[in-house]
Design a protein around this nucleic acid. Sequence first.
DNA 1: CTAGTTCGATGTTAATTTAACGTCACTGAT
DNA 2: ATCAGTGACGTTAAATTAACATCGAACTAG
Lengths: 263, 263
Amino acid sequence: MSTRRGDARPQEARQQAIAEFVAKQGSATAVELAELTGVSVMTVHRDVDELARRGLLRKFRGGVSAQPSTVFESDAEYRLNARVEQKRAIAARAVECVEPGDSLMLDDSTTALQLAALLEPLAPLTVVTNYRRTIDELCTMKDVRLIALGGDYSRTHDSFNGLPCTEAISSISVDTAFISTSAMTAAMTYHQEQEIVAVKRAMLASAATKVLLMDSSKMPRTALHHLAAVDSYDRVIVDDGVDTALLAELRDRVVVDVAATKN
Amino acid sequence: MSTRRGDARPQEARQQAIAEFVAKQGSATAVELAELTGVSVMTVHRDVDELARRGLLRKFRGGVSAQPSTVFESDAEYRLNARVEQKRAIAARAVECVEPGDSLMLDDSTTALQLAALLEPLAPLTVVTNYRRTIDELCTMKDVRLIALGGDYSRTHDSFNGLPCTEAISSISVDTAFISTSAMTAAMTYHQEQEIVAVKRAMLASAATKVLLMDSSKMPRTALHHLAAVDSYDRVIVDDGVDTALLAELRDRVVVDVAATKN
DNA sequence: CTAGTTCGATGTTAATTTAACGTCACTGAT
DNA sequence: ATCAGTGACGTTAAATTAACATCGAACTAG
């Protein structure tokens, strides 16, 4: 069959429709989805495979079911590749807040991972994190003492969370925490998931200096759970894509560094 | 089980025949194997599923192939030394102690890592570990709930230890712990390092069933710190390189499984 | 000891999923 | 414009699975 509609991206729209339908219904069969979308069962399978690969659905023989809590955020792999330039720029700026001998806490953000990659020259350091990729990055660094935060592994975040994690954090104190969030306005930071909020809050509470690393694509935007007021951070580092008015508002409340992306 | 022929254990003999045929030919189709064994294709599938679960075969759509050592492709530099055969044999035997739905604890041993590699077909499972390589192995397994034990990262062991780790363990209970040690006699297990002993002891204390995985090269031998008496384990799995007299002595104290390294 | 019951292994059937291949529109270069 | 290349989609046949049926052995109660 040929694509005859005026839709610019029929495949994407169809997958969106499938995701929404499944999220609403809880589950569906391949045949149902084929009838819904007007394509063959084969194509539904291909779409569903891709959605499942991105963690938006769960596929099982005989149909698909909704996957709780992953609908709003894109998957870990996608986040890793997106906006790398901005994140590197932010990390390069953040590393200026670190001095040899410091103890740091890094959350499960790709921005903090970029920061981690820059830490070796600043050793000796102590670094605490719950992000598996950051752990893998740091474990090869001689003279960086690495303390991993254990807990329940989340595939969508590739990090360890839950009670064991927050408890471990609360028995630790570090010089500086570097935190990133999924949404922010001039007054507040947010995150979509309850459990992640708990971990980030614990990290903030255990750090003498609290630094927020924000990719400009995430603001202004809100999410379900409040994380912390903007003025509770000691410093915010953003890339140079922030709206001017918003930046001015931010500067009324907190110290802001703008990291220039080179181009 | 139904015993029709003169064979004492038709199912086992058939699986043995399948394993040998595939090992010899390199690969085979389900229909071929059905003709070879004289049972239905369905039964071949079930047999092959079980063999694949034990890591003896690899199953793919359209047939099965011999296992080409998939576990260790990526880390030629790490533990390149021998004994992989023994460890794999022990792991293949250990996996029989695991059933879908179980919760497991794995220590920071390469033998337990081999076991971890075989776990995916047994999902759903909950697995707790402090070994970075095991974490990396398990985090890709859908339907395996992974709980990482955090703590101070040890570069010599590539694992997380110390107080945060032992505390986290003591607030957990699992069905089965799989432990390995660096030295053992017929009466006692040992380990060279105090800190590691603490973690392994905590793991044993938190497990309903305690399984010891022992490479025969480590016995009889002692080390500085006592870990636990042999009879405090519920089961010991060794490879077939153990001295006969020692094996007999062991059997006086604990259930011993001997894993055959090759057929 | 025997009849009934349970249980595990296997076969049967139908539905689902996959791989392989064919078709059609679109793209871009000659 | 023509034609090969590419990607999306459909078609078909084979492979695989789930679900159910069957059969015999082991087990139990009387």
